[in-house]
Design a protein around this nucleic acid. Structure first.
Lengths: 225, 225
DNA sequence: TTTTAAATATGATATTTGTCATGTTTTCTG
DNA sequence: CAGAAAACATGACAAATATCATATTTAAAA
């Protein structure tokens, strides 16, 4: 099994603030997992016994609404941690995590993480910074949900995915989402999301290559009213 | 000036995890402020040089949307801290804070808080827990915004205010908000908020005493479809 | 490969919510 | 206290979005 001390991924998240000793200890009790596209990593309401460090792939965090629809709240990619929030507040998870493509993750047991949080102030400050960033993003999403049109939100989502997760060699968005996923991010009906995507295509702001979406006019997307 | 070590308010927030020494030090450099109803505590985009500990009163945290509407993201009451997020991520504030009634706050300089965060793991873990809680709340709001009707959201807001901030002796909600504030919490037009409140009144779920709102049927409000 | 199921697409229509107009009531200010 | 301004209220209509129906295309499975 690979060693945390040598793992390049930790550079991208709070684990970088752990000491060599702490990393060695974590390395000895972590477990590595392969998760296939579409598989559930954890369920809403499940008690997490640790955090996941995402070595490769991407997943969606969503919450089931009372009307039966899934609302996607956040996406977590390679390099990021998964499950810290519920671990810290010692509650069951309020979100469900599902892999959007094949993933490789390391699972680190709760006791290790908590111990390090309580002993290593640099680490806990780093986690705190991450959480502060997530909170700001969440606040922005609230404002967008409340004040912007479906078309604007969808355009912003495309820009967000482009900027945050990058593109394939042919220029298409590297993250492949179904129309239903887009609808669940934006908080609208699947049909509405499809309609708006068709509209953006007609307007020449995006194009499609099979199921993949390519942004043709980034500035134009940002200006969508 | 009152002393932090003896202040009862700290029991309700993370400051309770500070040592006596740390509290004495904070006490010596904090400043106390009275803020009148309607006054701005800090603006969106402003650099905060510390955090506020709310000794009395309540304020709203909002963000101006591009369409000119204010979206209220959170309310902060007596006992809670204000401004930690932007302080931790070392960014200017993404929200504006306005007093909803007369407030008494203590301002604690950034350097003190940061120093304690980096030295006292118990304190930083406590702040982390708070932030995790805020993040969960924000996630829930996102889901509600995306999936629930204006009527449902407004009903839930009333229940939330009732449960979190309590009632006056006559049973009316202790937090007094304008119809515009309600609209800005729910993310709807002021007229729509007014209409829905009238409707809830007609249905006997709430009543009004002057500008104050009284919940007549809490269970009924929770069941609003 | 064939068959079946799922995802995508689009029209027609219903519902929700926003906007504008206007009137009333409450609150503030000189 | 009077007048002005703000907040509240409600109707009429417009716009945005959801829902339902039904093709069509794509992917999965037998």
């Amino acid at each position: 099994m690979s060693k945390c001390e040598q793992c390049i991924i930790k550079q991208f998240n709070s684990l970088k603030s752990l000491t060599k000793d702490e990393l060695v200890r974590i390395s000895s009790c972590k477990t590595s997992k392969i998760i296939k596209k579409g598989e559930v990593i954890f369920e809403e309401g499940e008690n997490l016994n640790g955090v996941y460090c995402v070595k490769d792939g991407i997943c969606k965090l969503s919450k089931l609404s009372e009307n039966g629809k899934d609302q996607i709240v956040k996406m977590v990619v390679k390099g990021q941690l998964l499950g810290q929030r519920s671990l810290i507040s010692e509650e069951s998870s309020n979100l469900q995590a599902i892999a959007l493509n094949d993933m490789e993750v390391c699972f680190i047991p709760k006791s290790e993480i908590i111990a390090d949080l309580q002993k290593n102030p640099k680490f806990s400050f780093d986690v705190l910074k991450d959480m502060a960033h997530d909170l700001k993003e969440a606040d922005d999403i609230i404002v967008n949900m409340a004040q912007k049109s479906v078309k604007q939100r969808l355009a912003e989502t495309l820009v967000y995915i482009h900027d945050s997760f990058g593109v394939n060699p042919d220029g298409t968005l590297s993250v492949l989402l179904s129309r239903e996923d887009y609808a669940n991010i934006v908080g609208t009906a699947t049909e509405s999301a499809i309609r708006v995507l068709s509209q953006l295509k007609k307007e020449g702001l995006i194009s499609t290559v099979g199921k993949y979406i390519k942004i043709e006019n980034l500035q134009g997307l940002k200006r969508v009213e």
